[in-house]
């Protein structure tokens, strides 16, 4: 019995959408080096508010890289409104599950996307309810250090 599902290993070994977007419309970064994981999501959003392109950069473990890869796959080509509905549960399910102590990685993926969308809204003065977005860059674990 391997630590990770085949799906996780596939997305870890062959991550989709790795890289950055120079003229991104929204960028979201969550996590920090002390905790051992950082995810950064770049979004290219068109006039119809559809995500034309998405890239990610991740510092972290196998499940962090796989979660970022899967999350970008799930929102690519989707309207921004749909991307905002992406939950960590959906990312985990799409990966055929994650070990319990790695669920935090899928949470980071969800938060990175939301943070990138928030950045896009801010840049384009689009109103939103701040309660729908993660509070800041601090992850829950870091309070413990």
């Amino acid at each position: 019995m391997a630590l990770y599902s085949e799906k996780v290993m596939d997305h870890f070994r062959n991550p989709r959408n790795v890289g950055s977007i120079e003229d991104a419309d929204g960028i979201g970064e969550v996590g920090n080096p002390v905790c051992g994981d950082i995810m950064k999501i770049y979004l290219k959003i068109n006039k119809e508010q559809v995500i034309d392109d998405v890239k990610f950069e991740t510092f972290g473990c196998g499940s962090a890289i796989a979660s970022s890869s899967m999350a970008t796959e799930l929102i690519k080509g989707q309207p921004v409104s749909e991307a905002l509905k992406l939950t960590n549960k959906a990312v985990t399910e799409a990966l055929d599950g994650l070990p319990a102590h790695k669920l935090h990685c899928s949470v980071l993926a969800e938060e990175a996307i939301k943070t990138a969308v928030k950045d896009y809204y801010d840049k384009n003065s689009i109103p939103y309810d701040p309660a729908d977005f993660p509070a800041g860059e601090d992850c829950e674990h870091c309070a413990m250090h």
């Binding site: 510092f59 196998g62 890289i65």
Partner: peptide
Amino acid sequence: GIEGESLLLLLDDKGICASSGSACTSGSL
């Protein structure tokens, strides 16, 4: 700039068994 668990998994793909002191491999924070 890198994290130990992903390093170990990729080394495993190359046939190298090693270990790391990263939090992710220890199961703690």
